[in-house]
Nucleic acid binder design. Structure first.
Lengths: 395, 395
DNA sequence: TACTTAACTCAAGTTAGTTGAGTAAATAAT
DNA sequence: ATTATTTACTCAACTAACTTGAGTTAAGTA
């Protein structure tokens, strides 16, 4: 019943510490117990006990001894990526994608079906079937299933903006999808939007591995934003944070479906590109069309990219100034070459808190997971939640 | 040595639980122990022990018994605002403000001196003197001093943007102010920028009391932004988050000191107003000048306000879309009437995630603390840190 | 007046972490 | 080659803080 901040006890503390150790090993492997203890402010003995538990659960595995330094060689622990797995599901009106990820975020299975009826009952049955199939294919036991992360278009009972070209799922209006999936899949379930899921997937296994502060600009039908800050997902007060597509980049500009004029989405989204090219009689309905036109250096395509790049530059600059992230990632349902072409065209302001000399990573990078981002992101959400400790920080 | 996420043990757990109980009582007082236990997922016995400790520390106090319901009447606890206090200091090249706040964030003392030499040694001595004076004036014991929050212009060893009209403190370049103040004041010390401190002060005792997600747009010399998200301060990867003043609102617009063109700060900041009015030979160096010209409906002043309001509208809309906050607060070193005049001129987009029917608070409000915001904010930071538990959430 | 409900106390029990002494195994110094 | 030093780790005893369960108290209700 109680939701929100709660008190701790020995059991919850133990849980927390397991996560802390797991997360430390994941991002610093290989690591010995003494090292872990120092870094996590725990006693060696405590780490020893915790490591033993995690090893017995198959989440950690020993990997030889460290040599070359003084003292007794430390037994090095590594993350055991195959100790558990998570399912990610992307549910859209026209397709379902089911992906299996191991604990390291490596994709071990993925299947996409396009003959979809997206109403609740049918969709759930289809997903269940795909999950069973995936588990037999990959020889996984259900007991190792951490949970499921579902990425689907919302909103659910929340006020939100209507976006251009965004399809809605039929029949889900009055349902709580979290509840529906939790019951039918019979495992812990998370529901998330595509941008946030993509951001998490980059952190679990992509270009943001080890980063605690970054933004992911997601090109779906519209444009979304996922923000990880201090290692935690930012959702805002009502779960609608990151509505980057409706930032106005042009005073009195294009009419947007949301009612405003000049929204970023009307210039730089996939849907915007489709509309733009339509004016010249060019069909751009698939991602392949995009890539092909770009490769051919189609002048209209290049024009669109230039224009989109200009609008994106403004918004990316704003993100840097507001969030002060380690990096900003671009990705989603566009071919890699198109993302790269956009990145090339984005001019980052010289005067920015992000323009620092000691950068470890570029200010702007392309996401790793490409088209499957959403489903992978769903599974990554589960892994993220399993791994990420809920904050107990020391100054 | 270890910074970041750490493991927990009995002692840290206890600390956490004390905060959880304290925070619960603060926001839900009066509250009985059984009620607290249920809400915080702790046993009644645990809450009993914790409450006894907090009472002995003077942080909680019993306040009669609850009647009217069945069962043994619960002893109701209340927050004891005068059980402890915090000092806030605003240190600027031309002034020092020292304020004392009780645990509820109520101002019990404040003094501003303007004959200041801001070099480290002198400033520290002056602050120490003011603190002693404040404690004798208000009859406070040093043992009840929670800590000090210092608000001063940075940056300190960090890459950051140069802002127009921003004065730098002489002699602090190679010092760690946190260390300097911690040693000289001999109490826990926090250093924060004005915008963040202001945001926290609104949460501790102002219009954001009880809010976990909001933004504070701070008018100092430039324009700053403080963001509280999920009850936590957002600082970004390098502590430079919230550089709202350098968001570009006008393509190829005014030249800004940061090197870019068209930054918000060149249109809507106090410094921008001073420059704007200078063109008409009008002096605007004090806040009183501002208020006076506004009251007289000076046409240039009104022109400036209209223009500033336009630029602010853009940025405020962006904040709503990105952070999905419960509200956005405007405040800082401008007279209340000027802030109100700006708010009047800000047009909030209809198409926004913030345009919801079930709002409890306006989308845009004025901060409560006015000119003293910064010093009060410093003290509020200390209270915030004392009270806010470091996240152990239950789904 | 007796019953029910609920808050609370007391004392014992549990859990997970800490502490300190001791052992093992490597590098570094002599 | 031998000794010293450093570091990692184990074992067993200890400890802090929360939980549990059996009362006790005191109000409202039948």
């Amino acid at each position: 019943m109680p939701i929100g901040i709660v008190g701790g006890n020995a059991e919850r503390n133990r849980d927390h510490n397991q996560r802390v150790v797991l997360e430390y090993v994941r991002t610093n492997e290989p690591a010995g117990r003494a090292e872990i203890a120092r870094s996590c402010s725990l006693s060696i003995q405590a780490v020893s006990n915790i490591a033993a538990v995690l090893e017995s659960q198959g989440l950690l595995k020993p990997d030889g001894h460290r040599t070359g330094v003084r003292g007794k060689p430390a037994l090095q622990y590594r993350f055991n990526p195959d100790g558990a797995f998570a399912v990610g599901v992307e549910l859209r009106p026209d397709a379902i994608v089911v992906s299996l990820l191991n604990l390291s975020g490596e994709l071990s299975y993925s299947k996409r079906i396009t003959s979809v009826v997206a109403d609740p009952q049918t969709a759930v049955l289809q997903i269940l079937g795909l999950l069973e199939e995936a588990m037999t294919e990959t020889n996984r036991e259900r007991s190792h299933l951490l949970g499921a992360g579902i990425v689907m278009p919302g909103p659910f009972g929340q006020t939100a903006l209507t976006s251009a070209g965004e399809a809605v799922l039929p029949g889900w209006d009055n349902l709580d999808p979290q509840e529906v999936f939790e019951k039918s899949l019979n495992c812990p379930t998370l529901i998330e939007n595509d941008a946030t899921a993509a951001a998490v997937s980059e952190r679990v296994a992509g270009v943001a591995k080890g980063l605690d502060d970054f933004c992911f600009v997601y090109f779906g039908a519209g444009i979304g934003l996922g923000v990880i800050s201090n290692g935690h997902i930012q959702r805002g007060a009502y779960g609608n944070a990151g509505e980057i597509g409706h930032i106005i980049t042009q005073f009195q500009g294009n009419q947007c479906a949301c009612g405003n004029k000049g929204c970023l989405e009307t210039y730089a989204s996939r849907f915007a590109a489709i509309q733009y090219m339509q004016k010249f009689g060019i069909d751009l309905s698939t991602g392949a069309d995009f890539a092909k036109l770009l490769q051919e250096s189609n002048p209209h395509m290049l024009d669109w990219l230039d224009q989109a790049g200009g609008h994106l530059s403004q918004v990316i600059g704003t993100l840097e100034n507001l969030y002060d992230p380690q990096t900003i990632i671009l990705g989603g349902a566009l071919p890699d070459t198109v993302i790269d072409a956009l990145i090339e065209r984005i001019e980052l302001p010289v005067g920015s808190v992000s323009n620092r000399a000691d950068r470890q990573i570029a200010r702007l990078v392309r996401g790793f997971s490409g088209r499957q981002t959403a489903a992978i992101g769903g599974a990554a959400m589960v892994i993220h939640q399993t791994i990420t400790p809920s904050h107990l920080t020391l100054a």
